[in-house]
Design a binder for these strands. Structure first.
Lengths: 205, 205
DNA sequence: TTAGCATTGAAACAAATGTACTCTAATACA
DNA sequence: TGTATTAGAGTACATTTGTTTCAATGCTAA
């Protein structure tokens, strides 16, 4: 990972760098030198060339010489986050290894129509889903593919939306909490709308 | 979200589209028509122009007319995942609202030097960190900024790496599990190496 | 101040590039 | 079979664009 300490930018360089990052995020392609010129309020491409050269020398950007709009931000080239190893949450078992496996969050994020919900309450606490967590859900296309024990978000019309374990026994639907202090909810299929099934849990501390 | 059903592509169009997506992912900028020409094994820009026009009409791409390398993939423009509302994990409280808040996972991912660890064991179960979860950690730069109660990954040389609550009392360091069946570990500062503090938890089901 | 250096403005050039056009070959269809 | 449609090759051209060069300006340190 570049762009760390030791490569301090001048104000002008930093302003340009931030503008470029923003532009490329918005447009998915590199700006031209004359565009940057205008954006920086300059009347000549030379200062931009100079700043780009410095940004390149300091490892912030790169481009293909002579080719139009071929800049790349060398930062932020990561696919997920490196998984450095495993950590014991029990005894002291495993040491920090140096695997290069990748935590592919994007695998979940890339699915179509994924949505997130904020969790209120503690009824799923035994499933390690706590108050304030975000749950990432996937819409349920075919109800009949839902397996018993899946965690789903379901709306019971007139009551509200809730996150529960799903069970089907005969014609009855049961929504069960992961917390002994909550009673299972028994429903008929026509009294419940399933919004999604659990894909992942995200908790920011 | 475009690119769904109804906009079927011919084989040639699809091949080009996939190649473009791949190129733009790798290089962070749009390819030129002549590059696409070569990649598709063609000897004239005309077929590429035609295919691009079709891709644009079907809503897959867009570009700025006359400008070099200004293509954009119109698909996949998402910042995180939409948070559709909150869901009760207790009683049936809240209904599906239509907020447009965004779950900004990238906020965490954008931090420098973030790394991930796989959790083994259940010693942090009362903190809702379960066996198999991924914990996203941030390196600890200044030890003295560590607050009591922070969850850290620490290496006790000769033993291994572990995930625990951090406490400092006087000169002693305590690593405490979130599980009554584990005893706190008492250490001197020189006998422990802190690798990171907890930023987020990720669990894929 | 003055010499030296970096920044900017200005202009010009050549390469890269999108676009338009014609022609030919292949394909589909009736 | 013949015609219409489509895809591709080839070419040409104007614009965009990176790059170079030179002079003017501003700033800093001796």
């Amino acid at each position: 990972m570049l762009n760390s300490e030791g490569n301090n930018l001048t104000d002008a360089q930093n302003e340009l760098y931030l503008w470029i990052k923003n532009y490329m995020k918005d447009f998915q392609h590199s700006p031209s030198i004359r565009q940057m010129m205008q954006a920086m309020g300059l009347k000549s491409p030379a200062p931009i060339q100079s700043r780009l050269k410095h940004l390149q020398e300091k490892g912030y950007i790169s481009w293909q010489e002579g080719k139009a709009r071929t800049m790349q931000i060398v930062d932020e080239i990561f696919e997920g986050i490196p998984v450095l190893g495993s950590v014991a949450a029990g005894g002291l078992i495993e040491t920090f290894t140096d695997t290069t496996e990748n935590l592919d969050i994007s695998e979940v994020l890339a699915k179509k129509n994924v949505f997130a919900l904020t969790v209120n309450g503690d009824s799923m606490i035994d499933a390690c889903i706590a108050d304030g967590d975000m749950v990432l859900m996937e819409p349920i296309n075919e109800f009949y593919s839902l397996k018993n024990g899946t965690i789903v978000s379901a709306m019971v019309p007139g009551l509200g939306t809730t996150l529960k374990y799903f069970f089907k026994r005969g014609e009855k639907i049961f929504l069960e909490a992961a917390n002994p202090s909550y009673e299972p909810i028994e429903l008929n299929l026509e009294n419940v709308v399933f919004q999604g099934k659990l894909l992942a849990v995200w908790r920011k501390v």
